[in-house]
Design a protein around this nucleic acid. Structure first.
Length: 419
RNA sequence: GUGGGCGUCGUCAAGCGGUUAAGACCCUGGGUUGUGGCUCCAGUAUACGUGAGUUCGAAUCUCACCGCCCACCCCA
């Protein structure tokens, strides 16, 4: 047997309607806020991610699915933003006027060890808003993510926000933090020692108790924001208030992708095991320029669909039952089968979902089949019905049956003849 | 890359050194030749992850490998 590669998962028919529902909620909401869908390729130049995400990040250093083809290094997209930015620049979409507002639904690939809420292929939907430097955009982006969650009935996810400043204030903070930690450098855990130079901010949310203790009283990024960044953060908070989005400030939120500036946020849930983030995002004012575009600010988020599903399952969300068809037509005998096909085609032309048994089974089996698949109506055509020009239409829920003229089948189905 | 847990029919799940390896669900057929869900009966299945070892004898004990899950790390 050839089995599925590790870290991959089939989305089976019994689950797909749930995904369709969730994706539809997102799509609809994004468009409600004026965002348009953009679809970019699965495969991009490796360099796009190396430069965009940052070549010191874990994602780029050890998690990318990269391969060589015709002397080019290509990579399966590990996240959604870089591709959208590339498309924005390459197609000169900035010439169409700003802001540019896009949403996407895409698979992403990261070569990681699997656990709850984490797989090597995962799906993400997200939005990007390019061109706005003010916090109105950040607040709107966060509001949309919040809207998706609440529309899906999720009320126990917490929003954490932070500002990680601009390159200027961050450099200063970084120094202050390193000065604070340096005396105890050798007491930090091994991973944190290696973080000290590379990314000291990560030490702040290390889980080892020793590091936690050493980090107590460390300087906080928020205290090192320059005036512009500080004002922006204050403005963001009041705009979120205006939108009615509850949040808590968490100085520990540090996004793992290098391109973030100022606003950083996460929606976290306690239903996800140790992978608590269902949605993450923030502002990236230098990314577009860094990738060769005009100096254009941006802000966006990505939401993990698998993780969203885990939350929905855990909170007992009731999806609409998956209904296969509206009607099953049973033709008994050769002539009746032909008639069944004609009727079925006719109804399908009117948008009704109709099934006909293709296994040549007995009537009883066909009724079982309809029952198993939750088909609400069954129409039987036998010799009697053929002679009279009717079908025996059965309402499966009520266990009631009536003869209906063949010409009237469509009307009968929607006129509530069993009422 | 580093830890921990677990692998018995399609699914759930007994069994813990000697059994024809239970049971339930699912599926198929039947209980008046054209009617489902409930009930009754019957039927189908190459189920002990793989390979060695211990033993008269292994699903049951040992080891290795593989796979799955969870945690560290990182993130959606």
């Amino acid at each position: 047997m050839i089995s599925i590669p590790k870290g991959m998962k089939d989305l089976l028919p019994s689950e797909s309607h749930k995904w369709q529902y969730v994706e539809d909620v997102f799509r609809t909401l994004a468009e409600t806020y004026g965002y348009k869908e953009i679809r970019t390729p699965m495969v991009e130049s490796t360099e796009l991610f190396a430069r965009g995400i940052g070549d010191t990040t874990d994602v780029v250093q050890k998690e990318m699915y990269s391969f060589e083809k015709a002397d080019r290094s290509l990579t399966l997209k590990p996240e959604g933003t870089a591709g959208v930015v590339r498309a924005f620049i390459e197609n000169k979409l900035y010439a169409e006027g700003l802001p540019a507002k896009y949403y996407y639904i895409t698979p992403c690939y990261r070569y990681e060890k699997m656990q709850k809420g984490r797989s090597r292929e995962f799906h993400q939907f997200g939005i990007e808003c390019f061109g706005a430097s003010g916090m109105m955009a950040d607040a709107e982006v966060i509001r949309i993510a919040y809207d998706v969650l609440t529309t899906l009935g999720i009320d126990d996810v917490k929003l954490k926000i932070n500002s990680i400043g601009c390159p200027n204030c961050r450099a200063e903070y970084r120094k202050a933090l390193q000065d604070f930690l340096r005396p105890n450098l050798d007491k930090l855990c091994d991973t944190c020692k290696s973080r000290f130079d590379r990314n000291p901010m990560r030490i702040l949310d290390c889980k080892s108790p020793e590091c936690q203790a050493l980090v107590k009283g460390a300087p906080v990024m928020l205290d090192y924001l320059d005036e512009d960044c500080r004002n922006a953060f204050e403005e963001l908070k009041s705009l979120l208030d205006a939108y009615g989005v509850p949040y808590e400030v968490d100085p520990g939120i540090v996004r793992g992708l290098d391109y973030y500036t100022k606003t950083a946020f996460e929606f976290v849930s306690d239903k996800l095991g140790s992978q608590s983030t269902v949605c993450g995002g923030g502002r990236y004012d230098k990314l577009i320029e860094q990738l060769g575009g005009p100096d254009t600010p941006g802000v966006g988020f990505g939401m993990g669909i698998e993780r969203l599903m885990l939350i929905l399952e855990a909170s007992g969300f009731k999806f609409d039952p998956d209904k296969t068809s509206d009607l099953l037509i049973c033709g008994l005998g050769e002539k009746a089968k032909i008639k069944a096909i004609e009727l079925a085609e006719d109804l399908r032309g009117s948008g009704v979902s109709v099934m006909i048994d293709v296994m040549d089974r007995g009537l009883k089996a066909q009724f079982k089949y309809a029952d198993r698949l939750n088909v609400p109506y069954v129409a039987v055509i036998g010799d009697d019905e053929l002679a009279k020009g009717v079908v025996s239409l059965r309402d499966m829920k009520r266990s009631e049956q009536k003869e209906v003229p063949m010409d009237n089948l469509f009307l009968a189905l929607f006129a509530g003849i069993f009422d």
